[in-house]
Deep mutational scan, measured.
Amino acid sequence: TTLTVNTQTYTFTSEEEAREFARRYGAKTIRKTNGTWEVHG
């Protein structure tokens, strides 16, 4: 199964959650914005 996250942004309140998600789905960018963490595919 392949998950494609081209134009979607996922927002997390903790860096740990964001990094775990990025690691699991191979997202390329993690960015902190206004106190939340954004993961970009």
Rank of each mutant, 00 (worst) to 15 (best):
K32T: 09
N34R: 03
N6K: 07
G35F: 03
E16Q: 10
T9C: 15
T36C: 14
H40Q: 14
Y25E: 03
T9L: 10
R19N: 09
T33G: 10
N6D: 12
Y10P: 03
R19V: 10
V39H: 01
F12E: 00
A22E: 02
T7S: 10
T11F: 12
T29G: 05
T1R: 05
G41T: 15
E17V: 04
H40T: 15
N6L: 14
H40N: 08
S14P: 00
E20S: 06
A27S: 07
I30T: 06
R24N: 05
A18V: 00
T1N: 13
T13I: 08
T1Q: 12
I30Q: 03
F12I: 00
Y10N: 03
H40R: 12
W37N: 00
A22K: 01
G26F: 04
R31F: 10
T1D: 13
T33C: 15
E20M: 06
Q8L: 12
T7P: 10
E38K: 03
R31M: 10
L3F: 06
E17P: 00
G35S: 04
F12M: 00
T33Y: 07
T7Y: 13
E16R: 09
T13W: 08
R19M: 11
F21T: 01
E20A: 10
T1H: 12
T29D: 08
E38M: 06
A22Y: 03
A22C: 09
R23Y: 05
E38W: 04
T33R: 11
T33L: 12
Q8N: 10
T4M: 08
L3P: 14
T13D: 11
T4P: 14
V5I: 09
A27K: 05
R24W: 06
R24V: 07
Q8H: 13
T7K: 07
Y10E: 02
N34C: 14
T36K: 11
T1M: 12
E15I: 05
N6S: 11
G35Q: 03
I30F: 05
R23H: 06
T9Q: 05
T29W: 14
S14K: 04
L3N: 14
T11R: 09
Y10I: 06
V39F: 01
F21G: 00
E20L: 06
T33Q: 10
N34Q: 04
T4E: 12
E38V: 13
G26V: 02
F12C: 09
R19D: 06
Y10W: 14
V5A: 12
I30V: 10
K28P: 07
R31H: 08
Y10A: 04
V39I: 04
A18D: 00
T9M: 10
A27Y: 15
G35W: 02
R19L: 12
L3Q: 14
V5T: 13
R19Q: 08
T7Q: 10
T36E: 08
H40M: 14
W37G: 00
G26D: 04
T4A: 13
E20G: 02
R31Q: 11
F12T: 00
L3W: 04
V39E: 01
A22H: 02
R24Y: 05
E38T: 07
H40F: 14
G35R: 01
Y25T: 14
G41K: 10
F21I: 01
E38P: 01
G41F: 15
T1C: 15
E20Y: 04
W37Y: 04
T11D: 02
L3V: 12
Y25N: 08
F21E: 00
K32M: 12
